[in-house]
Every structure is written in C-alpha cells, then in structure tokens.
Nucleic acid binder design. Structure first.
Length: 418
RNA sequence: GUGAGUGUAGCCCAGUGGUCUAAGGCGCCAGGUUGUGGCCCUGGAUAUCGAGGGUUCAAAUCCCUCCACUCACCCCA
C-alpha cells in the first residue's frame, strides 16, 4: 500500500478547523497592518535560494529538494518563502510602487530533514515581508504584528527573543572577535563547533552542547560591536518596542540559520519546548535583493510555522470554531420515495440549506442512526405514505417530535433555524 | 547523516515459547417493532501479529537483517 512520504502528512477533515482558524486570524492581522497577499510557485530556480539563503547553509547544502526538469532546468522546491517574495518584487517592478511594499503568503515549504515533533519535510508557513523601507519603525511594526498574530490566536506564554547581528560593515569586526575568543578554546569545543569556527563563527553561539553553551555565554556579543548606524537602528527599535509595551528578551546568542539576515533578528518561542521549536521568526535582510541581482533595497520579514501553531493551540487547549452541521438529513424508503428525496434535497439546497441524504438502501432505523451521528436538527422522512400524500414527515432530532409537512414549509422551517 | 525507543484489526491496546484457529475497548455493520435516532442489550465483520530469514518438536513471543514510525541531535517554522 502507498503511504504518504516521510515527513509529510495528510490534514484530515477533523484537523481542518485549526487550519481555518489560523488562516482567518492571519488574514485579519494582515488586513490590520496593510499587507497584500501573494502566491508564488512551489519551486524556483535553485540558484535563487543558493544565492540568498547562502551556499554554506544547511538549508541549501543538505536540505533542499533540487531536481532537474525535462528541459534540464535546475529547480528547487522552496525551502523558505522570503527569496520568492523578493524575486517577485523585482520581477514585477514593485520597486516602482510606493515603498514599502507589504506582502504576505501562505506557502508550503520543503526541507529534506529527519522529521520529529513540529518538524516536517513539507510544512506550511504564514509569512509576511515589508520591502523597501529601512526605518526601525518598520522593524517595530513587523514585530508588533507577529506578536499580535499569536495573541489573536489565543496563544500565551511565548517570549520574544531579540538581537541585532549588524551589517556588512560591522559584522566582520564581531566575527573576528568571536574567532579570537573561541580559537584558544580549540579542543574544548565540540567537533561541530571546531568546524564552525572556520565556516561560520556566528553559529558557535547556537550550539546546544553544555560545554559550548557555557563558552558562548561569555562570548563577544554582536550588539556590542555594531557600527554607529546599526547601533542607532537597534536602539530606536528597542525604544519603539518599549513604547508599544512589547516585552522582549535580549538574546545575544540568537543568530539565524540563513545568510541574508542583517541587523534585527527575532524569534517567537513558546514557554515550553526546546529552542528548536520556535513558533515563528524573522529579521531584516537589507542585502538580500542585491544578492539576487537587484538594487539595494532594505526589507524585513517574518514567518511562522502552521504545524507548530496547531501543536501549541492543542497543548494550550484553545478551542477553535467548528463547522456548522448540516441542517437536514433526508431518509427514504422505496423506489418512488427516492425520487422525491432527490427532488427535496435539490429544493432545500437551492434554498441555501445544507442537506445530507441517504440512498435509502438501509432500514429507516439505520438511516436515522446516520442522521443522529451527523448531528442534524431535522430528519425528513419520505416513505410510501408520504409519496402518496405529497408530504414529508419532518422529525425534530432534538425533541423527537415529528409532523407531516409540505416541502415548501420544510424549507421555511429549516431556513429559519426553528 | 547520528543516537534511542516502538511496530498486534480503521483507532487505542492485552498478550514475553505450547491452552493464540490472538483477548478487550472505541469505531463500523446488523438485530432487539410492522417505517423511527441518541442510552442499553445481543450478534457480526475486520489482524498475512511491520517484512524476510534463522533457532526450536513448537514463535506474536527468542536471534539476525531490512523497513517503517516516534523522539532526540544537527538545523530550522
């Protein structure tokens, strides 16, 4: 038998209310902040991600689904959403629009990883990007928006982790300090970290190994080595957040796994669950558009993982709206009754009433059991007597009362919800 | 890619060498009225015991290999 590929999942009808709920809250949040929806392809030129996310990152190196199509184009299933949004921004000349351009999306994201709790090979992100404005006001607004999105979902007890990793001008200085700090520790670092020292010293801060963690705590902080511009940007962002009453945790070890981030980086972390279970995260990426061949364009974005939100909604026992049950179940007995049942279902549906019906193969008892299981308010029963009389036996499933009715009366009754 | 754990019906699971032609619960189907649901009662269907190989007179149960799932690491949403 076929099974869904590893790391993918079917979202069955009973799960859908969670997704619908999240989508509605996201849509409302985007409306409040003036974001417009964009859909981009599930796959792109592989180079788009290699250039933006970074050749040296795990995402590009070992997690990206790359393939050649029949014309030998090198394509990749998108491993994140920002690069596509920026590509679309450039491709459609959105730099000629009033800036910033604010886009949001729901996208499936593909990464070849070992699945575990809250992590899948295909997962879904709600993300937003504000492109074209360098002001820290925008940073504050994006952070405010992401926080309010989670609050609107009813989620509580999450923290906002914040850091600034500087820009092309000041980051090299910090990196050098980091190397100077970590290099003498050499053999006391774990194997991974010794490799990271060469490849990407920032990542050393991220290591979960106790020994490295202790070392990372004392390491030079990027925020201490910001250039004047980055420092001023970070300071005013913090003052905006304070003015908005948004609490945050300065986390100098918060670096993100994508190369394109500059200055502001942030993450929303649930109270419970490890550091790898972030509900969402984002940051500024002022260099990304130049990395993929555009003119210098400042931007900042945020993305959240739908599956992780569902997990947290459940663990926090947040009830989500359930879809309405159909109003009427039509039961029938006998061949002539079936014709009447089909006609009645059509009349009711034309009148906007949700109807489910039985094909009449089973006993009335069995049909009513189905009606009960479906949670309908009314069962409309059509047997030989009703066919002869041109009526319908209407049974109220809540009270058990029933009465003969005309089809058009039934329409009125069910429509009024009485 | 690495490490640990788990694999028995649609779902939850009992069972650790013979009494297992595999128990129970949920769900499903039917019956308990001649045209009537929800509770209750009765009956029924559904399991190549993850797959393959081995040990043994005898394997769901022991051994080996493989596969899948889960959790954790790496990294991220």
């Amino acid at each position: 038998m076929f099974k869904a590929p590893r790391g993918t999942a079917d979202t069955l009808p009973e799960e859908q209310p969670y997704w619908r709920y999240i989508e509605e809250k996201a849509l409302e949040t985007c409306r409040l902040y003036g974001y417009g929806r964009i859909n981009t392809p599930a796959f792109e030129d592989a180079g788009l991600f290699a250039r933006s996310v970074g050749e040296g990152t795990d995402i590009v190196n070992k997690e990206m689904y790359v393939f050649k199509d029949r014309s030998d184009n090198e394509l990749a299933l998108r491993p994140e959403g920002t690069a596509s949004a920026c590509r679309a921004y450039m491709e459609h000349g959105m730099d000629n629009l009033p800036q910033p351009v604010k886009l949001f999306y729901f996208a499936d994201i593909f990464r070849y990883e070992r699945p575990q709790a809250g992590r899948y090979r295909q997962h879904h992100q709600f993300g937003c990007e504000s492109i074209g404005d360098p002001s820290p006001m925008v940073d504050a607004e994006v952070i405010h928006m992401s926080r309010n999105f989670f609050l609107s979902l009813g989620l509580r007890n999450f923290s906002l982790q914040l850091n600034s990793i500087g820009c092309q001008n000041c980051r090299p200085g910090h990196l050098k300090k980091l190397i100077d700090y970590f290099a003498p520790l050499g053999p006391r670092l774990c194997g991974d970290c010794q490799a990271r020292l060469e490849r990407n010293p920032l990542r050393l801060l991220d290591c979960k190994k106790p020994g490295c963690q202790a070392a990372a705590e004392e390491a030079p902080k990027s925020a201490d080595y910001l250039c004047d511009e980055c420092g001023a940007h970070f300071e005013s962002l913090k003052s905006y957040l304070q003015a908005l009453g948004i609490g945050f945790v300065l986390n100098h070890r918060l670096v993100r796994g994508l190369d394109y981030y500059t200055r502001t980086v942030f993450e929303i972390q649930p109270a419970e669950g490890g550091s790898q279970s972030a509900l969402g995260g984002g940051g500024r990426y002022d260099d990304l558009i130049t990395m993929i061949g555009g003119k210098p364009t400042p931007a900042i974005g945020f993305a959240s993982g739908m599956e992780r939100i569902v997990l947290n909604l459940k663990s926090q026992c947040i009830a989500v709206p359930q879809p309405a049950k159909p109003a009427v179940f039509i039961a029938c007995m006998g061949g002539d009754a079936r014709v009447e049942a089909v006609k009645l279902a059509a009349v009711l549906r034309d009148g906007g009433i949700a109807v489910i019906s039985s094909s009449g193969e089973r006993s009335l008892k069995a049909q009513l059991r189905l009606a009960n299981a479906a949670g309908v308010k009314y069962a409309a029963i059509i047997g030989e007597d009703e066919v002869k009389a041109g009526t319908v036996m209407l049974r109220n499933m809540e009270t058990g009362e029933q009465q003969e009715t005309q089809p058009d009366e039934l329409l009125k009754l069910a429509g009024s919800g009485q």
